[in-house]
Computed example of a mutant assay.
Amino acid sequence: MGKIANKQMICEVLMEAAKTDKNIVALCSDSRGSGSFTPFADTYPEQFVETGIAEQNLVSISAGLAKCGKKAYAVSPACFLSTRSYEQCKVDVAYSNTNVKLIGISGGVSYGALGMSHHSAQDIAAMSAIPNMRVYLPSDHLQTKELMKALLKDEKPAYIRTGRNAVDPIYEEGNVPFEMDKATVVTKGEDVLIVACGEMVKPAKDAADLLKAEGITATVLDMYCVKPLDKEAIVREAVNVKAVVTVEEHAPFGGLGSMVAQVVGSECPKKVVNMSLPDAPVITGTSQEVFNYYKLNAEGIAEQVKEIL
Results as ranks from 00 to 15, higher is better:
A213R: 14
D181E: 14
G300M: 12
V201I: 12
V25T: 13
S128G: 11
S128H: 07
P177T: 09
K270I: 04
D123F: 06
D42C: 09
N99K: 10
C28P: 00
Y136G: 04
V220H: 02
T43P: 00
P278G: 13
L309W: 03
L27E: 03
K156H: 09
V91R: 11
L152Q: 05
V185L: 12
A213E: 12
A208M: 05
L58T: 04
V239F: 07
Y86H: 11
C197Q: 13
A26R: 06
K22L: 00
T20Q: 10
F291A: 08
A196D: 01
M9V: 10
N165P: 00
D123P: 09
A166C: 04
E46Y: 11
S76H: 12
K19T: 01
M116L: 08
A166I: 06
G35D: 06
A243P: 01
K149A: 04
V167A: 11
M148F: 15
P157V: 12
M116K: 12
N57F: 05
M15H: 04
V93A: 12
P281N: 11
A78Y: 02
Q143M: 15
L27C: 09
I301V: 14
G2W: 01
A5W: 06
F40A: 04
G112F: 10
K7M: 09
D154T: 14
D123I: 07
G265Y: 02
A218K: 10
A126S: 08
S60L: 10
